[in-house]
Design a protein around this nucleic acid. Structure first.
Length: 569
RNA sequence: CGGGGCGUGGCGCAGCCCGGUUAGCGCGCCUGCUUUGGGAGCAGGAAGUCGGAGGUUCGAAUCCUCUCGCCCCGACCA
């Protein structure tokens, strides 16, 4: 490609509305342009990178025996209603109507569609297992798109779905996919970490996310030196017990007029928040549930939903709270409740003489003792992880880092095959639901993640494996016949050698061309100028290390092609 | 959805508070000449319904009302 003919619109100044490194550089280097909030054009340079990443993904998917296919972006509402996700997915599911008012979803993920294919086409256990994948534009109507393509409403994703006769077979593919993902991110030269993850709206029994380490990342990961790593939504920890040993005192109701929050009550009664029990009423798939946790901690709704086996858990509306507790919001407590399931976090167990809501207006109760004043069958973990929590595996204090979630894999089990009645016949002729796994990888997000980890104050430093071009031939003073001739010959020779090469043949001043070269970050820059030509040399410079040296013009193309070959992943 | 901010040639911004010639600046773009190893110089030039609608006024980029869009923080969320 010749720069003079290419659409590579670079900018000298940072765009005013971009905050993160990758967002700024993708705009400045002419990789992307915003069309509207959370929706981007991929310009030629950006698209070349996307294609390189896709190629790596395809190679690694094909290597473990996956088959590529393409499903439609648009799918009918009925399919989503079969699994209940038409309602569960919420506003993030981008819905559209056709001219007859029929409803459709723009696919955010394709479990329903792929399961529909498989239930119609696959009959026998002999055909199992297999994995289908696609690379496609996905839609999620994000509540707040941000950071350029990192959280976009329209983005490019690789999604794969595996089908099995049993859990063992799923485990095998899950492991193979996990390993393939490691190879993909290694080849993209990313520093990443797989971590245990929550399953969220996709559902299923186990899940990992691959996190690219990055301070501006949106996700928080909890890690322990023993090797434990999980997202903050998923992480389990031991909440340090700070309750001193006390003798239980008799319960005592107290007037707390208008004191509805932990903060209010804590201040009003002069007790620390951890000496209160927070009581929250939820509605889980239509059923009210009461959750208890130490007053200074928060409930993790994700964990609560998991333990209840519910697909949707949300804070109960005031009406439900009143019906369940007999009091308006702000005075709920565990004492005297009946006919409602009680979920008690482990942090409550060691508490003595604490304050709870009195289930009556303007009343709280002091000196409540779990086990004596209310009973639970079992203490569970429904706590949002906290800063000083200890590792459950080794007991040490855990740390955290921030990251960009570039992919997530799930063991779905039969969640979708059950609700969509997707079955195969086993050896005994019995209809069994497919056991499924699904495996997403954000391609466009991966591109941004690579930039986050590979840039400096001057611009991007592409790894060879994903660079839009492998070599840039920078002709200083392209008007000079000698320079032009050598540049053109090198350009042709490199192309002939199968190297992706960009020739900067613009009639601009050297400064402009050097700055642009640094900005777009092609791994190898070859500078051809009158200065070097006098001694029969050209200069080769590595963007990543800054290392540079002169090469004799004769044989330069072969030498450069060799270096490129060596650096390809 | 709550809070904050911003919409002025392609990009980055000034002007607005305190209304008053043809709305400016830097970069970019076009033409010509010179220049060519780290964002060149000179000369000439094109390009803006000041986000949109309504209002106040003799007069609105500027004041008022409504509206649309964009960004940030939060809530939320594979």
């Amino acid at each position: 490609m010749r720069w003079s003919k290419a659409l590579i619109p670079t900018h000298k100044e940072d765009p005013s509305h971009a905050e993160t490194t990758s967002h700024k550089l993708m705009l400045r280097a002419g990789l992307i342009r915003r069309l509207t909030s959370g929706v981007y054009n991929y310009l030629p340079l950006g698209w070349r990178v996307v294609r390189k990443v896709e190629a790596i993904v395809r190679e690694e998917m094909d290597r473990i025996g996956c088959q590529e296919l393409l499903m439609p972006v648009v799918s009918p509402a009925e399919l989503w209603q079969e699994t209940g996700r038409w309602d569960v997915y919420g506003k993030e599911l981008w819905r559209v109507d056709d001219r007859n008012g029929r409803q459709f979803a723009l696919g955010p993920t394709h479990e329903e569609v792929v399961t529909d294919i498989v239930r119609n086409e696959v009959r026998s256990y002999r055909q199992l297992p297999f994995t289908l994948y696609q690379i496609q534009t996905k839609f999620r109507d994000e509540i707040r798109p941000r950071f350029g393509v990192v959280r976009a409403r329209e983005f490019i994703m690789k999604d794969a779905y595996s089908f099995h006769r049993d859990e063992d077979s799923l485990d095998e593919t899950y492991k193979a996919m996990y390993d393939a993902y490691c190879r993909i991110f290694d080849r993209c030269d990313l520093s990443y970490r797989p971590v245990e993850a929550a399953t969220g709206a996709i559902g299923g029994s186990a899940s990992h996310e691959f996190m690219v380490l990055c301070d501006t990342g949106e996700s928080e990961v909890i890690v322990c030196e023993c090797g434990y790593a999980a997202t903050d939504e998923r992480a389990e920890g031991l909440i340090a017990d700070i309750m001193p040993v006390e003798d239980p005192l008799p319960m005592e109701p107290v007037d707390t007029p208008g004191m509805r929050t932990i903060e209010d009550v804590s201040e009003f009664l002069g007790v620390e928040p951890w000496r209160l029990i927070k009581t929250i009423v939820y509605v889980a798939d239509g059923e009210p549930v009461v959750a208890l946790i130490r007053g200074d901690r928060d409930i993790n709704e994700e964990k609560l939903a998991g333990l209840l086996g519910a697909s949707m858990v949300e804070a109960a509306p005031p009406g439900v709270v009143e019906r369940v507790t007999g009091a308006p919001v702000g005075f709920a407590g565990p004492i005297g409740l009946s006919g409602v399931r009680l979920m008690v976090d482990r942090s409550v167990e060691p508490l003595t003489n604490v304050v709870v809501g009195g289930n009556a207006v303007d009343i709280h109760i002091r000196n409540v003792n779990p086990g004596r004043d209310f009973i639970t069958d079992d203490y569970c973990d429904i706590a949002m992880i906290g800063k000083d929590d200890l590792c459950r595996k080794c007991g040490k204090v855990m740390g955290s880092f921030r990251g960009i979630e570039v992919s997530q894999v799930f063991k779905l089990g039969t969640k979708y095959s059950d609700s969509m009645k997707a079955t195969f016949l086993n050896e005994n002729g019995k209809a069994m639901p497919f056991v499924m796994g699904c495996y997403g990888l954000g391609v466009s997000r991966t591109v941004a993640a690579i930039i986050e980890q590979h840039s400096d104050e001057y611009g991007i430093k592409w790894p060879m494996s994903v660079a839009p071009f492998e070599v840039e031939v920078l002709a200083v003073k392209f008007r000079s016949e000698e320079v032009r001739e050598v540049s053109e010959r090198l350009y042709d020779d490199l192309k002939a050698a199968g190297v992706d090469v960009l020739l900067d043949d613009r009639h601009d001043s050297p400064g402009v061309k050097f700055k642009d070269a640094d900005l777009i970050g092609i791994p190898i820059r070859v500078t051809i100028g009158e200065r070097g030509l006098k001694s029969g040399t050209l200069e080769i410079r590595m963007r990543k290390t800054g290392e540079q040296r002169d090469l004799p013009i004769d044989g330069a193309a072969a030498e450069i092609a060799r270096i490129v070959e060596e650096a390809r992943a």
